[in-house]
Nucleic acid binder design. Structure first.
Lengths: 334, 334
DNA sequence: GTGAAAGCGCTAACAC
DNA sequence: GTGTTAGCGCTTTCAC
C-alpha cells in the first residue's frame, strides 16, 4: 500500500497525491477530495522512513535524563498536545545521567532525522548545544541561555526561590538555610545557580544576609540525606530550610522520620517542583510550581515555529507560583 | 557523508561497508578494520530513514499510557539496557488513557518501521494485539495472554495478592476488604482480574470467605477517594484493606488525612507496585514489588529474540515480593 | 494545476 | 570474500 497505489486508485499522479498528503500548495480542492477518499478507502499509511528520506519525518525527539520525573510527564504532555495539532509525533528517549549517555542518545535522535529536538536539563555545555543546533532545530528546557542558535524555555528560578524566602519571612523565620546543588555553583546556565541567587537576593532584601546559610549537597535522594545531616551540624540551627528541589526535601523528611523527628516540628521545610508526591496528604510539602504543562506547550510552539522557518532565537522565562502547604509554619516561640 | 563516501575512502565496495556497519556475516577481519577506521575518520553516522527503508531501523518502540509512573521508568531502563547491547535504540511514546489515542500512537510507531514494539498495559483487545503482531514483533507487558502470535511478560498477580492477604492474616486480620478496578472484572487478560482471584483464593484458603468484601472503584487517584468512602459505607468495618494498587492506597491515605484520620490507626492498608512514593518516610506503605527493571530486561530479551527470528511465543510470569512496611499492623483489641 | 522522472542512502540479491 | 546494481516509498524539480 504505497502512495503510488493511492495515486493510481484516485487516477492522479504520485506527485499530486504527495501534495495532498503533505497539505502542500498546488492541488485543487477536487483533487484533494479524490485523493483523500482513496487514502481512506485503501487504508493507506505513509511510510515513515521513506518520508524521512527526502522530506520530514514529522517526528520531534525529546531527550530526558530518566522518565521517572512527574515534571517531565507534564512537559511531554504539553509538547505533545501542541505538535500533534501540526501533525508531528513525539518520541521520548531516556538518556540517563551521564554526559556520554546523553550524547549517544542525542546523536541517535539526529541520525533518525527528527525534525526537531527538545533537550530537557541536558548535561551539555552551551558550546555543545550550539553545535547541535547547527544540525537540527533545537529547544532546550531548564537551561538558562541567550544563544542565537537555539530556543530555550526555563522557569524564573530566581523569582521562585525568592517566593519561598518571602513566604518564610512572612511566617516569622529569620534563620533560613538553603540546600545547594554543588554542580551548578559556577554555571549560570543551571537552574540551581539562579535559585541560589534568588535566595541570596531575597535574604539580603529582608536584611537577613547574616542569617543565610548555604549547604552543599547534590540534588538527589542521597543528597537529601546528606543535607539533613548538614543542617544538624550547623553551629546555629535554622528554623527553616529551603531544600532547593522536592526530591531533596522528601529525602530530608524521610531521613528525619527515620530518626523519629518530624517536619515541621524540627524545622519548616520547602521544596521546589510541585511534584505529585509533594501534594499527598501525609506529606503536604510547601513547594514551587513550575507549570510543566504550560512550559511544554511553549516548547512545542517554539519548535514548530523554528521547523517552519524561524531563524532568530527565543528565550522564554516562565513565572513560577508558590504552593504553601503544611511543612512551613511559624517558628516556635517567636 | 554517506556509506558510499566511507566505501570510497576505505577502498572497498558499498556492500562491504554495509556489511561492516551491520556486523553482518561475510567480511574479513582486515576489511572490518579498514572500514571502521574510515567511518571513524570521516565521522560517519548512518542515516536512520535510509536504513529503515530497506532493512531495519534498529529502534524499538515502547508505548505507555503516560510516563509519570515509576514502574514504567524501571521497565524502560531494563528494556533499554538489554537492547542497547544488541545495538537497538529505545523510543518511548506516551499514548494517553484512551483507546483511540493508544491506537494512533501504535500505528505511528508501526509507520515509523520500528523493528519491534512493546505495549505496556495496553487498552486493546487480545484480537487487536494479535492483529498488531502480524505487522511487527510484539511483546506486551501487564497483559496476561497465551497468544501464539506475540510474547508477554506479566507479574504473577494472583501470587502477589495472596502474599498481601497472608501477611494481613498473619498479623491477625480477618475482615480484609479488596478494592477492585471495575474495568477488569471480566477480562482474564488484566492484572486486576488475577489480583482479585488471588485475594479470593487466599481468603478462602484461610477460611475467611465470609469476611471478604470487594469494593468497586477505578484504580486511579479519584478511585482511591471513592474507595475510602466505600470502606466507610460497609455495614461491618474491615480492619484491613488491600487497595489493589499503590495509587489507590495513596489516594485513600490522602483522603483520610483530609478527614484527620490516619493509617494504620483507622485500618491497615496495603497497595501494589512498590512505587517510589510508597517507600517514603512519612508514608511507608506496605505493598508488592514487581521488579520493573527485571521485567524490562526480560521484555528486551524476548523482543530481540523475536526480531532475530524466533516465531513461537513466550509468556513469562514474574514472581512478585511483599514489601511489609508501616501501614499494616495487628488489628486493635484482637 | 498536474504529471513524469530523478534520486535520497541504504540493503540484499546475485555475480564473480 | 568481495563488488555491482536494482530498488525501497517518498518528495521534488521541472516540464507541460
Amino acid at each position: 500500500m504505497t502512495i503510488v497505489d493511492v495515486a493510481k486508485h484516485a487516477g492522479v499522479s504520485t506527485a499530486s497525491a504527495s501534495k495532498v498528503l503533505r497539505n502542500a500548495y498546488g492541488a485543487s480542492e477536487a483533487m484533494r477530495e479524490k485523493v483523500r477518499a482513496s487514502m481512506e478507502e485503501l487504508g493507506y499509511r505513509p511510510h515513515g522512513p521513506a518520508r524521512g528520506m527526502r522530506g520530514r519525518t514529522y517526528t520531534i525527539g525529546v531527550l530526558v535524563s530518566d522518565i521517572d520525573n512527574p515534571f517531565f510527564s507534564l512537559l511531554a504532555d504539553g509538547v505533545s498536545s501542541v505538535i500533534r495539532a501540526h501533525s508531528y509525533e513525539l518520541l521520548l528517549s531516556p538518556a540517563g545521567f551521564t554526559r556520554s549517555g546523553q550524547r549517544n542518545v542525542k546523536d541517535a535522535l539526529i541520525d533518525h532525522q527528527m525534525d526537531g529536538l527538545v533537550l530537557v536539563s541536558p548535561l551539555m555545555s552551551s558550546e555543545e548545544l550550539e553545535e547541535t543546533a547547527r544540525d537540527i532545530p533545537l529547544c532546550v528546557v531548564g537551561h538558562h541561555s541567550d544563544s542565537d542558535l537555539f530556543d530555550s524555555v526555563a522557569g524564573d528560578d530566581e523569582l521562585g526561590a525568592s517566593l519561598v524566602v518571602d513566604h518564610l519571612v512572612e511566617l516569622g523565620h529569620e534563620r533560613i538555610a538553603f540546600v545547594m546543588n554543588h554542580d551548578g555553583r559556577m554555571d549560570p546556565a543551571r537552574p540551581e545557580y539562579h535559585r541560589l541567587a534568588g535566595y541570596r537576593a531575597a535574604m539580603e532584601r529582608h536584611g537577613l544576609t547574616d542569617q543565610a546559610a548555604v549547604l552543599d549537597a547534590s540534588w538527589s535522594f542521597e543528597g537529601g540525606v546528606t543535607a539533613a545531616r548538614l543542617v544538624d551540624e550547623l553551629p546555629v540551627q535554622p528554623t527553616a530550610v529551603h531544600a532547593g528541589a522536592d526530591i531533596v526535601a522528601l529525602a530530608m523528611m524521610n531521613e528525619l522520620w527515620r530518626q523519629e523527628r518530624f517536619i515541621p516540628e524540627a524545622y519548616s521545610l520547602a521544596g521546589y517542583d510541585n511534584s505529585r508526591t509533594s501534594a499527598l496528604g501525609p506529606i503536604r510539602l510547601t513547594t514551587v510550581d513550575q507549570s510543566g504543562r504550560q512550559m511544554g506547550e511553549t516548547v512545542g510552539r517554539l519548535l514548530v515555529e523554528r521547523i517552519e522557518g524561524r531563524t532568530d532565537s527565543r528565550h522564554e522565562l516562565m513565572e513560577p507560583t508558590l504552593m504553601a502547604r503544611s511543612t512551613t509554619v511559624a517558628p516556635r516561640g517567636e
